[in-house]
């Protein structure tokens, strides 16, 4: 029955897009210094949402952990391109109330790309810089970070779902801003491109952060689960200037939480074929 129900094509979130756009227009300025263009973000959401719901068949768990406040949304990076980021952002805009545009922190390489950089900025992406991040959090906006960095997506098939070591920047920003970390685990995105090899030396020679060689360059319709974990508040005894060793101890706790959720998520994921949406 669930399978039959999932065959229906869903083009708009619960309550329709108008509810989402009304909420977004109350929070986000028409002219944003980082280049967010609300009209563009709305058009993108209208385009991506049917794919989110019907192609990737995203299931969202843990909405109850999200309050009406800013977060440093921290995800595991999977898949070869940042489709996971797009799906998380769609979930936070369309499925979580109140709707919000996650400001995805992206690599310098990404923002310098013609067309792509401008398109991403208009959709809310921001150069991953400490100052940018602090400014956004101060304005009560939520940011999306992938602390594994490029290593998270530049993985060979054998390393799928293995969390790469986190960098420390996001954690120090959480300490400096007092904004909690909201861990998010994505399951299903590694199967978008199931057979991948990364010639890292060649990528370096070409000045690219990664160079995935895959059998397919359009993502396969792997069903995706997004798990939102309870907010992680860094220990009070830490400060933004605490030594790396102390920061690393806390990051390890966060990584362990996320690894446990990855293991649980892998157990409960749907089959690749003949799956249902909810």
């Amino acid at each position: 029955m669930k399978y039959l129900k999932s065959l229906s094509f869903q083009t708009a979130p619960e309550g329709g897009f108008q509810r989402v756009f009304d909420e977004l227009s109350q929070v986000y300025a028409k002219e944003d210094p980082w280049g967010l263009n609300l009209a563009h973000a709305e058009r993108t959401l209208r385009t991506v949402y049917p794919l989110y719901k019907n192609y990737f068949k995203v299931r969202l768990f843990g909405q109850e952990h999200v309050e009406d406040r800013p977060y440093i949304v921290t995800g595991n990076h999977t898949g070869q391109i940042a489709i996971d980021g797009m799906l998380i952002s769609t979930a936070f805009a369309a499925e979580i109330k109140p709707a919000r545009i996650l400001r995805a922190m992206v690599e310098r390489f990404f923002v310098s790309l013609p067309f792509v950089g401008a398109w991403a900025a208009e959709g809310g992406a921001v150069l991953g810089d400490r100052q940018n991040c602090l400014h956004l959090l101060k304005q009560k906006q939520s940011v999306l970070v992938f602390p594994e960095g490029v290593k998270g997506i530049a993985k060979n098939t054998s390393d799928h779902y293995k969390l790469q070591p986190f960098t420390r920047g996001f954690f120090r920003i959480s300490l400096a801003s007092g904004v909690p970390i909201l861990p998010v685990v994505v399951i299903g995105a590694e199967e978008f491109f199931p057979f991948v090899y990364h010639p890292m030396k060649l990528a370096k020679m070409m000045g690219l952060p990664a160079l995935p060689l895959s059998l397919n360059y359009l993502p396969l319709p792997s069903p995706v689960d997004i798990h939102i974990l309870p907010a992680f508040i860094p220990p009070q005894e830490l400060t933004p200037e605490s030594p790396d060793k102390q920061i690393d101890e806390s990051i390890e706790i966060l990584e362990k939480m996320m690894e446990e959720q990855i293991a649980k998520g892998l157990e409960m994921r749907r089959p690749f074929l003949l799956n249902h949406r909810s």
Binding site: P33, W34, R108, V111, S112, G117, V126, L127, D129, R130, Q131, N132, H135
Partner: peptide, 17 residues
């Protein structure tokens, strides 16, 4: 003395602000 914001350069990794 009047200088200009051009001194900072227009680069992809410029923070805001």
């Amino acid at each position: 003395t009047l200088s200009t914001y051009h001194v900072y350069g227009a680069l992809a990794d410029n923070p805001v602000f």
